[in-house]
């Protein structure tokens, strides 16, 4: 028993070092812009660039849009699969895992090739090229991000749904007179809160740092900005990395606070 505890502790400490050391190194490096002293001048110069705030805000807006579209798509789908067509689950799961198999570069070229010109079905024009205006390209970008976040979002929601007895809760609500909207809004979503939050957080993290799709759709996102900065500056990218880590942790802390602070009890099933 003792020995097992020891081994567990060693693995735990090793794991922490594995994650923390590179981050710590980056952090120290980011403080060394001024020769010989530790200073925050890399942070000052990173913040001084107006492009930083601009791209960061842009990516945040994209992330929020992605989360909204993704939730609207995934929650009803996962719910319906679980409730009515559980036999489809393997197929749906396979589809949601496709972004792991298809590289982002393939996805973005497919999007550009398909939507970069007017879309027609049997020669009938359906809608014009989407890459011609900033707004329509942003729409394309959000859709691509929804695809990228699918594995994480679907898995989070599906796990949340499996933790409760979806069928019985649905039937109980139905017998009390509730329609589909009420069931989803008043029963399913409130019980999925922590699953939705974790799915949203993962999506946020993916979108804010995403490089490939934003680059090839030529939108001023945070990922391409970081990459560009890394090409001709040394200390500022390190500073920005630390900042984005800090923001992610802040988001996680907030989620923890929100979930723990509520007096609503555990987010498990009905048993």
């Amino acid at each position: 028993m003792r020995k097992v505890a020891w081994v567990a502790w060693i693995i735990y400490i090793f794991g922490i070092l594995y994650f923390v050391l590179p981050l710590f190194g980056t952090f120290i490096f980011s403080l060394q812009k001024s020769r010989g002293v530790l200073s925050l001048s890399a942070y000052q110069s990173a913040f001084a660039d107006p492009k930083f705030l601009e791209t960061f805000l842009f990516s945040n807006v994209m992330a929020v849009c992605t989360i909204i579209v993704s939730l609207l798509l995934v929650v009803p789908t996962a719910y319906w699969v679980q409730l009515r067509v559980p036999s489809w689950r393997p197929a749906v799961e396979f589809v949601t895992l496709l972004p792991f198999v298809i590289p982002a570069i393939v996805l973005v070229f497919g999007l550009i090739k398909t939507f970069g010109r007017p879309v027609t079905i049997f020669g009938v024009p359906v809608f014009p090229a989407l890459t011609t205006s900033a707004l329509s390209t942003d729409f394309l970008l959000v859709m691509a991000y929804v695809v990228l976040s699918l594995p994480y979002m679907y898995r989070a929601v599906d796990n949340g749904l499996r933790a409760m007895d979806v069928r019985v809760l649905t039937e109980a609500a139905q017998s009390l007179g509730a329609g589909w909207g009420t069931i989803l809004w008043r029963i399913i979503i409130p019980n999925l809160r922590s699953a939705l939050l974790s799915g949203a957080l993962l999506t946020f993290a993916i979108v804010v740092g995403e490089l490939t799709i934003a680059t090839f759709l030529a939108r001023p996102a945070f990922g391409p900005y970081l990459a560009l900065l890394g090409n001709h500056k040394a200390y500022e990218p390190a500073a920005l990395t630390i900042i984005s880590f800090a923001l992610t942790w802040l988001a996680m802390g907030l989620i923890d606070l929100v979930t723990r602070g509520s007096k609503r009890g555990p987010l498990t099933g009905a048993h």
Binding site: A172, S175, L267, T268, A270
Partner: peptide, 14 residues
């Protein structure tokens, strides 16, 4: 307008 009671209680946890 039929009331139903389930084996697993099915109370809304939230």
């Amino acid at each position: 307008n039929i009331g139903m009671v389930f084996q697993s209680y099915a109370l809304f946890p939230n």
